[in-house]
């Protein structure tokens, strides 16, 4: 698919597929169109050419919206929002119940499960604005998990969060992939925490897919997602010659 905000194409002939149960990372320099690609995929933006299919249908025809979970880049959380962790996570459950149906015992259990899978159960009655950045981010991940999605899409969820939260984040993602067989599409610069669990890495550069394959193949080119994870952004920004990467 191709997408342009105005004249200039932000995404130019991009073709990406995520299979059921797959854990895929999408990386690329700032401004390479990662967030835009996610928005097109989720049906928030319509491609200017080409097509998007979610579970085999166009995004706007997808009836079972709970099959999608979305954690946007920098959730626009008001600093003074009076809401508890539990209220935030429960809002994610509306993907299953719709805006009218009342919560049943099963819904409350799922909300609880989502909170426990990001280790926020103890903080459930705390005001989200009183939590650390990493804890807030985990609350938003739990919100996306509360509908128990088949595909979880996360836009830079670990940017600037502490190591402890990153570790818990990794645990909750692997839990989701292994136990629920959900697919995960993760945009992140900091793949060190999840490097071993990834099935595929997609590199987006100047609006096109530059690399698409298993992390080992990327690592074989000298770019390590694990130990030397600092290399990745450097390489992506073109400071390290990308010519060594064979696709």
């Amino acid at each position: 698919m191709t997408f342009a905000y105005g004249q200039e194409a932000v995404l130019d002939g991009v073709s990406v597929a995520v299979e059921p149960g797959e854990f895929v990372a999408l990386v690329g320099p700032n401004g390479s169109g990662k967030s835009t690609l996610l928005r097109c995929l989720l049906g928030l933006l319509a491609p200017t050419a080409g097509a998007v299919r979610l579970f085999g249908v166009p995004p706007q025809s997808l009836g079972q919206r709970w099959r999608l979970g979305y954690v946007p880049q920098r959730p626009a959380l008001a600093r003074d929002l009076p809401a508890t962790v539990e209220e935030v996570v429960a809002a994610g459950r509306l993907a299953r119940t719709g805006w009218r149906r009342r919560f049943r015992a099963e819904d409350r259990e799922e909300v609880e499960h989502a909170m426990s899978s990001v280790a926020l159960l103890d903080l459930r009655r705390r005001r989200v604005s009183e939590l650390s950045g990493g804890q807030q981010q985990r609350a938003f991940i739990a919100k996306a998990l509360a509908g128990r999605p088949d595909l979880l899409v996360l836009d830079e969820p670990v940017a600037g969060i502490d190591a402890e939260s990153q570790r818990r984040f990794r645990d909750s993602l692997t839990h989701l992939v292994e136990e629920h067989r959900s697919a995960v599409l993760l945009v992140s610069h900091e793949l060190g925490a999840v490097a071993e669990d990834l099935d595929r890495v997609v590199v987006l550069r100047r609006g096109s897919v530059y690399f698409d394959g298993p992390p080992a193949e990327l690592a074989a080119t000298g770019v390590s997602l694990g130990v030397h994870r600092d290399d990745l952004p450097l390489w992506l920004e073109g400071l390290v010659a990308p010519g060594d990467v064979r696709h």
Binding site: P75, A91, A144
Partner: peptide, 19 residues
């Protein structure tokens, strides 16, 4: 209840299929 979800984050409310 649905408005609260919209206030929290409009885009993910849209993705969740809320009107």
């Amino acid at each position: 209840r649905a408005l609260f979800a919209v206030v929290l984050d409009e885009e993910s409310a849209r993705v969740a299929g809320l009107p």
